[in-house]
Nucleic acid binder design. Sequence first.
DNA 1: CGTGATTACGTTTATCGTAATTATA
DNA 2: TATAATTACGATAAACGTAATCACG
Lengths: 313, 313
Amino acid sequence: MKLQQLRYILEIQRQGLNVSEAAETLFTSQPGISKQVKLLEDELGVTIFERSGKRFTGVTEPGKAILASAEQILREAENLKRASGEFATGNSGRLVLAATHTQARYALPLVVRDFISERPGVKLELHQGNPTQIAEWVVNGDADIGIATEALDRYPQLITLPVRQWSHCVIAPDGHPILKQQSLSLSELVKWPLITYDTAFSGRSHINQAFERIAASPNVVLTALDADVIKTYVSLGLGLGIISALAYDTRRDAGLQALDAAHLFESNTTRLALRRGTYLRRFDYDFIERFAPHLSRHAVDLAMQGGGAEYQL
Amino acid sequence: MKLQQLRYILEIQRQGLNVSEAAETLFTSQPGISKQVKLLEDELGVTIFERSGKRFTGVTEPGKAILASAEQILREAENLKRASGEFATGNSGRLVLAATHTQARYALPLVVRDFISERPGVKLELHQGNPTQIAEWVVNGDADIGIATEALDRYPQLITLPVRQWSHCVIAPDGHPILKQQSLSLSELVKWPLITYDTAFSGRSHINQAFERIAASPNVVLTALDADVIKTYVSLGLGLGIISALAYDTRRDAGLQALDAAHLFESNTTRLALRRGTYLRRFDYDFIERFAPHLSRHAVDLAMQGGGAEYQL
DNA sequence: CGTGATTACGTTTATCGTAATTATA
DNA sequence: TATAATTACGATAAACGTAATCACG
C-alpha cells in the first residue's frame, strides 16, 4: 500500500469515478493510475470500485471504508508536511483567512495590519464569502481560519471558538422622527420601512426571531449583503437600517445617527472556525490571539483536543 | 514521503533511537533505514533525530510532531487493511481477547464456546493478564478487546464500556462459626484472618476502601491473583475468603459456603475496552453483543464516536 | 465511432542488501 | 577496540509514460 495509491483512488472518487480526469488533475497518465488501483485492490484482496466492463460505475462496500480511511491518512499526511514545513521555513508561510463582509470590513483591518507588519514572512490572504462558503473552505482546507457569525457551528468537522459578542443598532438619517423617541421598541420599528441584511448574514436570524416573537411582520424594503449598502440607502431616506453595531462609527458615518438596539434583538457571537485535527502553526495561534486575546494558544489547544466541549465567552 | 519511511522512524523511536535494532525488528538492513531516514528528512526539510556525530541522541522539536503524525497515519493504515481484510476473508479472521483470570475463568467460557461454534472461521485467542497489561495490549493493538474490572478507564486511548455489575461474597469452609451469624458486617470480618485478591485485581480497591472507611485494618494473611487460589486456602482453613460472587458456585465449590457481601463493599463494574478509532469487524461486534447483550452494534458505535461520553449501565 | 479503461512494453528511478568506511563511547 | 551509523555500489523491482488494444454507450 502506497500513499500514491490512496491519492489515486480518492481523486477517482472526487472526479466522479472518471479515471482519465483523475489522471489529469494529478498530472499523471491514466494507465498509471489504472494499474495502481488494480495493484492496491490485489494487495487488499477486495475490489474498491464497481465496474461494468471497463467503466467505473460505483464504490463497493469495502471501497467506502477504504476511501474513508484513505482520506484520514492523507489528511494526517498533510498535517505532517505542514508541521515540518513550519519548522523548515521558520516564521514564514501562507495564512488564509475566510471572513464575511462585516468581519473583513469592520473587525479585521487593524488586526491584519498589525499582523502583517509583525510577521512579514507570512503571506496573508483574506477571502470574502458568505458563512456557508466560509465553512466549506475551512472544511476543505482551502482556508485556515474562518470568521463569521452564522452557520459555522453547523459543521461537525469544524471547531468553533467564540470571538466576541455584538448587538445590532438601528440607523436613521439625521432628523428622522424616530430619533426623538424616548426608547426604541419593536412595535415602533414595524411602522417604518426597514433595510437590513440578507438571510443567513450577520445575525439576520436573530432579527427575524425578535419580530416573530411579537408576531409582527416588519416591512423590509431592501436586503443587502453588507452594512455599507444598507447605510447608503438609509442615507437616501429609503428606510431605517438595522445593522451590526460594529459597523457604525459616528465620525465616518456623518449624516447618520445610530440607536442602540441591544435590548431588541438577541446578541450575536462572532465565531472563529478551524478544521478539527489540523496542525496549527505558530502564526495561526498568533493571529488568533491577536484577533481574540482570550484565545491563547492554550485555550485553542484545549478546544481542539476537547472536540465537543463548548467554550464559554 | 513513503509509508515505509514513517514505519522506519517510528521503529527507531520505539527501539530507543537505535537504528540497528529497528532494522532487525523490521527484518531489513540497517543502511537501508539510515538512507530512508535521510531522504525523508531531506524531503521535509527538517532533521527528525538529533545526532552527535553518527549516533542518534534525541528527537528534535519538529521530529516530535512528525512522529506523532506518523503514528496516526500508520494506525489508520492498519484500520484500512483491517477493514478490507474483513471483506476479503468474509467471516474469518483473528480475534484476540485479553482478560483477567476472573473473567477468563468465570464470565467468558460459555460466551467463548458459543462464539467459536457459531463462527468457526474466526480464530479466537484469549490472553490472560493483569488489568494494566490488558489495557496496554489493547492500546498497542496486541489485543482487540480487553475485559477487566480495574484500570481500563485510566487510559484515554481506550473506549470502555460497562458489561455488568457484580459484588463480592465471603467464603468460608463448612462449619465455620461465621456462618451462624445473622448478618455479616465489616467489624465481624476484621476478627478473622482474610484471604483475598492482590492489589489492582478484581475490585480489590473497593475492599480496601470499605475497611478504610471504618478505620479498621483487616488481617489479610494471603493475597492471590485469582479466586481459585483463594478458595484452595479457604478450604484448608487458613482464613475467610473475599472473592467475586461470580467465582462461587454451590455445586462446584463443595465444602465451601458463601455469604453475600454486596452490602459491605461497593459493587464493581466489569468493563470492556476497545482502542479508540479502531475499525471493528463484524465478529468484533458479534462477540461484544454475545458477551454483553445490551452492547448492540449501535451502542458500541455511539460510544466509539462519542469518545468521552459515558455509557450508563 | 468516440470515449474511456486495460494491456504491453521500454525507460527511468527508487529500493534494498552487501561490503567497505568512518565516527563514537 | 567494539559498537553503530554512513557511504559506495550493484542487483532487483517498482513506477511511470507511450503506444496499442479492447469494451461500452
